[in-house]
């Protein structure tokens, strides 16, 4: 059996993938990686299928011992000093690991959620079509729970693809000071003009009530509609205004249905930027039209596809330098969209 052993689980490490959207009809949370962009980049660096399961960590990242050889990449939240066998390693870069290698990821210093992707993906059994861990339902990942010391994660045997090694993506998100872009929500027009203006003009603070289900924000409370809303289906990034007038942003492990009015939804192109905010971070919003947001999202997805295709095209070419240059060129396309 090819396995990776957890030496130290970190603070909150789970197995995640693209989630189980088709089971929302049965009441199961979608789940999956919080930062789908960082997770996707990790997988495409490794030529993985786009739903290959990865480790997601927050706060303090795990330490692992490899009982087999494979390739890995770390993406997402910034780590203070990740190392492979005591040698510092970089993010967004592919490394070859061998039997007996030890990976120490350590604490996160910026951002919120990071990913360790592994060639071929983690091979824990699928539950309801996904390997994503949903704690509330106790399904997915390993027994539906966060990882613990001594857990063994099954992985696939890999062929040595020298062209993968040191593949690197110089990718940076927009600075945190830029506004988080929004679409109007289904109940937007039920809020008063004054509430809408106040919502768009004020600076919100992310509270300590933040988890994979959602982030609670606080600001000057806004007036909520008085109509009693029947529960409706939710989407990633929906911003509900609760009875006390503060927003809650619904994220990966959100309930499938909700009864609070949804004033707006975070534009898909900015989801990854929003989820990487830690408690106490200041947030302000900017409203887009559906057309603008759709164009931005389409461009981001098309650039990712182009990057994937170019990586696949380079799969069997001689290693390192030519493709690193190519990868960096393509990288600039992703940044344009951001």
């Amino acid at each position: 059996m090819n396995t990776i052993e957890i030496l130290h689980p970190g603070l909150f490490t789970t197995i995640q993938d693209i989630g189980r959207p088709t089971h929302q009809i049965e009441g199961f949370s979608e789940s999956g990686a919080m930062d789908q962009l960082a997770y996707q980049i990790g997988n495409l660096l490794l030529n993985n299928p786009n739903d290959a399961a990865a480790l997601e960590y927050t706060g303090i990242a795990p330490d692992l011992l490899f009982h087999t050889e494979t390739f890995i990449a770390i993406t997402g939240a910034k780590l203070s000093q990740p190392s492979l066998n005591q040698q510092p390693i970089q993010q967004n870069t592919v490394y070859a690991v061998h039997q007996g290698d030890q990976l120490n990821l350590g604490p996160i210093t910026a951002g919120r959620f990071g990913y360790l992707t592994i060639a071929g993906g983690i091979q824990t059994p699928k539950v309801l079509d996904s390997r994503a861990t949903t704690l509330k339902a106790q399904i997915g990942g390993l027994a539906g729970r966060t990882l613990r010391a001594h857990d063994q994660l099954p992985i696939l045997p890999v062929q040595t693809l020298t062209s993968l090694e040191y593949r690197h993506l110089a990718w940076h998100a927009l600075p945190a000071t830029q506004p988080i872009r929004l679409l109007p929500g289904p109940q937007w027009s039920q809020f008063t003009k004054q509430a809408q203006t106040q919502f768009l003009n004020q600076t919100y603070t992310i509270t300590n009530q933040t988890d994979r289900m959602g982030y609670h924000l606080t600001g000057k409370p806004i007036a909520t509609p008085t109509t009693n809303l029947l529960s409706q289906g939710t989407a990633f990034g929906n911003i509900q205004i609760t009875r006390n007038g503060d927003p809650v942003v619904l994220l990966a492990d959100r309930q499938t249905t909700g009864g609070y009015p949804v004033i707006a939804t975070i534009a898909a192109v900015d989801r990854h930027r929003f989820v990487q905010n830690a408690p106490q971070a200041k947030i302000h919003f900017q409203l887009l039209t559906v057309t603008q947001a759709t164009a931005l999202w389409r461009t981001q997805q098309q650039n990712l596809q182009a990057l994937t295709q170019s990586f696949h095209a380079m799969k069997y070419q001689p290693p390192i330098s030519p493709q690193r240059i190519a990868a960096q060129k393509i990288t600039s396309m992703i940044q344009v969209t951001d």
Partner: peptide, 13 residues
Amino acid sequence: TSVIPGYATLTIN
């Protein structure tokens, strides 16, 4: 890709 029925709504992804 997926659908979520509500009381009086249907969300279609």
